[in-house]
């Protein structure tokens, strides 16, 4: 009886529901949708347009075609910032992830106090990007700084690490590595997902610990490694605050990060058109690197559901 009644009613309800859903759907996502159009999509198109102009905030933009992009190729400081940023990303990200993985493996042995130590290791990740830590870093590694004094007491080096063009970048790399706590916790979570039966079976078959690491742990962790690699690399290319505050891009532009040069160009020299071209080049670089990661992932990232590679 009830079922008979429901069939026609639910049919009409459904079509009404669909229209109502369109309305309530768009209503509920409207905060994001408006923001996306006004603050992301519109500005992206505007930025693309500006990159072909000589806009300087004071007078109307003039179309200059590809001139900005061509000038980038012969801009020594721009090329320097590319070199510095690539060096920074390709040294700091692997080191940070290796540290994170090594300590995650160590903590995964389940010794007492492991979670307490893991928590302490995570503190730098929470505050590492702050201005306060930049202040501290500048003091620790500067002239008469505590780390400088320790290094000179150990007879390693006497130099003011921040003021020396050869070492300034490593001070910033160290700051990034210091924040290995958050990828470490992601690795720890990944390690706990690996079924213990795999190790038991391998032990029965007589596989050594080292063999187990390379045949079980590492392959099973590849999705997490992949995730960390992509996110850390993108973040690395956008790094701004640390270089801007600790070294100011110097000495001799040795720490002139891409984002710092872009900021200077746009907001100190007001060369908005030129800086927009830089922003698009950055987007292309990040897109290319991310797609390389994704395209190569099928050769090295192991997904369980596929039952193999």
């Amino acid at each position: 009886m009830e079922k008979e009644k429901k069939i026609p009613a639910s049919l009409s309800l459904e079509s009404r529901n669909l229209r109502a859903d369109n309305l309530s759907g768009y209503l509920s996502i409207s905060p994001w949708l408006i923001g996306f159009i006004l603050l992301i999509l519109g500005p992206m198109l505007a930025s693309l347009y500006l990159s072909f102009t000589d806009y300087n905030l004071l007078s109307a933009p003039n179309w200059v075609g590809l001139a900005n992009y061509q000038n980038l190729l012969s801009d020594g400081r721009f090329l320097k910032s590319l070199e510095v940023t690539f060096k920074f990303v390709f040294i700091s990200v692997p080191l940070k992830l290796i540290f994170a993985l090594a300590l995650a493996l160590l903590f995964n042995t389940g010794r007492k106090g492991s979670s307490l130590f893991a928590a302490v290791y995570y503190v730098p990740s929470i505050i590492g990007g702050s201005v306060a830590i930049a202040v501290v870093w500048r003091q620790l590694f500067g002239r008469q700084g505590a780390i400088t004094q320790i290094l000179s007491a150990l007879n390693i080096t006497d130099a003011n690490l921040i003021g020396n063009p050869n070492t300034a970048l490593s001070v910033l790399i160290l700051l990034v590595i210091w924040q290995f706590g958050s990828p470490m916790i992601i690795f720890l979570a990944g390690l706990r997902q690996i079924p213990l039966e795999l190790y038991e079976a391998a032990s029965v078959d007589g596989a050594t610990k080292i063999r187990q690491f390379f045949s079980i742990t590492l392959p099973m962790l590849t999705p997490v490694i992949f995730f960390n690699l992509v996110m850390q690399t993108i973040q690395g290319f956008m790094t701004f605050t640390q270089s801007y505050l600790i070294t100011g891009g110097g000495p001799l532009d040795e720490t002139l990060f891409y984002a710092v040069y872009l900021y200077e160009t746009a907001f100190e020299y007001l060369r908005m058109g030129y800086a927009s071209a830089m922003a698009w080049v950055l987007l292309i670089i990040i897109a290319v690197i991310t797609s390389i990661f994704f395209l190569t992932s099928k050769y090295w990232v192991f997904y369980q559901s596929e039952g193999g590679r």
Partner: peptide, 27 residues
């Protein structure tokens, strides 16, 4: 909720996660 272009809009949302802030900063 189900609405038109939901999947496309969701893809836009996901893409913005990886978008560098610099690209929208100036405009």
């Amino acid at each position: 909720l189900e609405f038109k272009f939901k999947n496309a809009l969701f893809a836009c949302l996901m893409a913005t996660i990886m978008l560098p802030v610099q690209i929208t900063l100036i405009p």
